[in-house]
Amino acid sequence: EPELVFKVRVRTKDGRELEIEVSAEDLEKLLEALPDIEEVEIEEVEP
């Protein structure tokens, strides 16, 4: 069974934007590691 992958769009407080694809596990780590995120948009990517 393929692992869930999420497309994550992040905007930081200083206005930088970042778009990455991460696994569910990595997404959890990412959110814990970035306390200064202003906006996060997450969508599931079809395998």
Rank of each mutant, 00 (worst) to 15 (best):
E32I: 08
R16P: 01
V45F: 07
K7T: 04
E28Y: 12
E17Y: 15
A24E: 05
F6N: 01
A24S: 05
V40C: 12
I20V: 08
A33S: 14
V8N: 00
I20F: 15
V45E: 04
I37W: 14
K7E: 01
D36T: 05
P35E: 14
P2F: 10
K29T: 06
E28K: 12
I37S: 07
R11I: 09
E32A: 13
E25K: 14
V45H: 05
R11W: 07
L27D: 00
E25L: 11
L27T: 00
D26G: 09
E19S: 09
E46N: 11
E1Q: 14
T12K: 04
A33E: 09
V45A: 07
A33R: 09
R11Q: 05
E43P: 03
V8H: 00
E39C: 07
E38D: 11
P47Q: 10
E32Y: 09
R16E: 05
S23A: 09
V5I: 10
K13G: 03
E1W: 11
E41I: 13
E46P: 09
I37P: 05
V22A: 05
T12A: 04
E38W: 15
F6C: 08
E1C: 09
F6Y: 12
D26C: 06
V10M: 05
E32C: 13
D36V: 03
R16G: 04
P35T: 14
K7W: 06
G15A: 01
D36N: 08
I42P: 02
L30Q: 01
E39D: 10
L4H: 08
G15Y: 01
G15F: 01
E28Q: 14
E38Y: 13
E41K: 09
K7D: 00
S23Q: 04
L4I: 11
L34Y: 12
P35K: 14
E46C: 15
K7Q: 02
V10G: 02
L4R: 15
R11T: 09
I20K: 02
E43V: 14
E1R: 15
E1I: 11
P47V: 10
D36F: 07
V8M: 02
I20H: 02
L31C: 09
E46S: 13
I37C: 12
E44K: 12
V40T: 04
L18P: 00
E3L: 12
R11V: 10
R16W: 10
F6Q: 01
V10T: 01
E1P: 12
E43S: 11
V8D: 00
L34E: 03
A24K: 11
E28M: 13
L30C: 05
I20G: 02
L30F: 14
V5E: 01
E41W: 15
V8C: 05
E1K: 15
E41H: 13
P2Y: 13
I42Q: 03
E43D: 06
I37D: 06
L27E: 00
V10A: 03
D26Q: 11
E17N: 10
R16M: 07
E43Y: 15
E44H: 10
R16A: 06
D14Y: 04
D26L: 07
L34S: 06
I42C: 07
K7F: 04
V5W: 14
E25W: 11
D14K: 04
E39P: 03
G15I: 00
D14M: 03
V8I: 09
D26H: 07
E28D: 09
E25P: 08
V40F: 11
E41M: 11
E44M: 15
I20W: 14
L18H: 06
D26S: 05
E44I: 15
E41D: 08
V40R: 03
D26M: 08
P47F: 12
E21N: 07
E32P: 02
L27K: 01
V45S: 07
E38V: 13
S23R: 11
E44S: 11
D36M: 05
E32N: 11
P47T: 12
A24H: 06
K7L: 09
E44Y: 11
L27Q: 00
L31G: 01
L34W: 13
V10F: 13
V10E: 00
V8W: 01
T12C: 07
E28S: 09
L34R: 04
E1V: 12
A33W: 14
E1Y: 13
K29H: 05
E46G: 11
L27H: 00
E1H: 12
T12M: 14
E1T: 13
E19A: 05
E46Q: 14
K13L: 05
L4T: 10
E43K: 11
E19C: 15
E21K: 09
V45C: 08
A33K: 07
V45I: 11
L34V: 05
R9M: 03
V5T: 10
R16N: 06
V45M: 11
A33T: 11
E19Y: 14
D14V: 01
A33H: 08
E28N: 08
E41Y: 15
E17Q: 10
I42T: 03
I37Q: 03
P35M: 15
V22T: 02
T12H: 06
P2V: 10
K29E: 04
E19H: 12
P2I: 11
A24G: 07
